[in-house]
Design a protein around this nucleic acid. Structure first.
Length: 428
RNA sequence: GCCUCGGUAGUGUAGCGGCCUAUCAUACGGGCCUGUCGAGCCCGUGACUCGGGUUCAAAUCCCGGCCGAGGCGCCA
């Protein structure tokens, strides 16, 4: 039976165990050999003595990062710094690693990010790197748990679509037999159709594709989007869903793995709701007072976003965006047609989520199509759902990698992406 | 799409017209060593992104390609 390395403390002194893992380090002293063995739960020193094993010479020639099985006895009176070791009785080499490694796992030299991504399978052997994805896993688990407890159902909408654009973002074309198709940039239109189907509360976790030629630390051409849509709800309601789910997920994730995160330098704090809210117009005024060249209708430049972010130390909402900066399906404000019932959720100077109440009236939606210069024919599959009983609804879409990046204070969104797809990277 | 910066052993760097037969660290190979734990000591292998050009002389200067980092624009 396999024993995981973090379980060794519970095993009594002298007992025989089988452990499996990677040889992280070797220290050779002629007739004595120390192997530092690593599995996904921790590391342990394995002491190999010539008289104890029958293949000492073979084991002596082992290379770093080779995969082995060790049968041996737990020694809790070890003089090693860890105070515990395994005295090997049997070492089976399951797979010998070639040398030299394309990059080191525990070497003192730094490695360029490009080199790390080219050798991501090794890069992720570093606990600090794989921990990012363990954190993401916890976060997503608790977001799902929250959604289920609120009676949301998880759905899966198509990623290969026919509509040419919903305005703005470029799409990746794919060949679909004799037709032309695209990779979807967002499940938006399908979530809305499901509101017309009476699902009431849906969420989806899935990939989204953007064919924009960006070259920044916060853009990816393929990312994971968490999408939510709720019937008979407005923007205020789904902002509540958003902040409550994040509070639940982040705080539970910290309860579960906060200690390990701390040990690895990711010091993160629990959060509380409600998040502060500020309107777009208030921020425009604020920026103008501080000598920024900006007027109503402009988007915030990266420089302006940085300036704004100095006022907040955690999440904050920017609400009531002008209609011209929002997609065609965004609900205008009842009292002012120039602004919309929309919001962005910011963490630091980066937008992690954007949402709104949607237009549920067919005529207004049609008018918006024409205003934004969109081709109504390619959206028939969507707009048809609005003619036969579409409830009022609202929702949002959240970029998972950006969220993780910002919570853990990483300096590049590619750090929180297992295998990033960006302007130039398509492999691995 | 525009702009800036960069590419030297497996990894990361120094050198920025002649002192380069190219520095250092780490990794790798070999040797010594029965308690190492950033092991130590000795020996060794290993590199100037590619193509043109300038020059008596190019890793070093110029032009172009390729590759990369980042900023801006654009971006439900």
């Amino acid at each position: 039976m396999r024993t995981y390395l973090n379980g060794l403390n519970e095993i009594e002194d002298g007992k025989s165990v089988d452990v499996y893992g990677w040889v992280q380090e070797t220290r050779k002293i002629k007739k004595l050999l120390f192997l530092i063995l690593r599995d996904n739960t921790g590391v342990i020193q394995v002491t190999v003595k010539e008289d104890n094993v029958n293949n000492y010479d073979e084991v002596y020639g082992i290379t770093r990062e080779s995969v082995i099985r060790v049968n041996g006895n737990v020694n809790k009176k070890s003089v090693s710094r860890q105070g515990i070791e395994i005295v090997a009785m049997e070492v089976e080499i399951l797979n010998m690693a070639e040398t030299p490694l394309p990059m080191g796992v525990i070497d003192k030299v730094t490695t360029d990010f490009d080199t790390r991504l080219n050798n991501r399978f090794i890069d992720l052997r570093k606990i600090g790197n794989s921990l990012i994805f363990r954190f993401e896993n916890e976060l997503l688990f608790f977001i799902r748990e929250y959604m289920h407890s609120e009676d949301f159902i998880e759905v899966h909408t198509p990623k290969i679509v026919a509509a040419a654009t919903e305005g703005g973002a470029d799409l990746f074309p794919v060949s679909y037999f004799e037709k032309k198709a695209y990779l979807n940039q967002s499940p938006q239109l399908y979530k809305e159709i499901l509101m017309g189907s009476g699902f009431d509360k849906v969420f989806e976790v899935g990939p989204a594709f953007r064919a924009e030629k960006e070259n920044t630390i916060r853009h990816l051409n393929e990312f994971t989007s968490i999408d939510v849509e709720v019937s008979f709800a407005d923007d205020e309601y789904v902002m509540g869903v958003l902040e409550n789910s994040l509070e639940y997920a982040i705080n539970h994730a910290i309860d579960k793995i906060g200690k390990v995160l701390d040990e690895n330098g990711y010091g993160i704090k629990k959060i509380s709701t409600p998040f502060p809210r500020v309107t777009y117009s208030e921020l425009i005024e604020y920026l103008q007072k501080n000598n920024f060249e900006i007027k109503f209708g402009d988007d915030f430049s990266p420089e302006a976003s940085k300036f704004i972010s100095q006022k907040y130390d955690s999440f904050y909402f920017i609400t009531k965006w002008p209609a011209e900066l929002r997609p065609f399906y965004t609900m205008p404000d009842k009292n002012n047609q120039n602004i919309t019932n929309s919001f962005d959720l910011q963490l630091g100077d980066i937008e992690v989520c954007s949402g709104a109440q949607r237009i549920h009236n067919y005529e207004i939606l049609e008018k918006n199509f024409l205003k934004k210069g969109l081709n109504e024919n390619s959206f028939n599959f969507y707009i048809k759902a609005f003619k036969f009983g579409m409830p009022p609804h609202a929702g949002w879409g959240l970029g998972l990698e950006r969220l993780v990046m910002n919570i853990l204070k990483l300096n590049n969104v590619r750090e929180s992406t297992l295998f990033p797809r960006d302007r130039s990277r398509l492999s691995p």
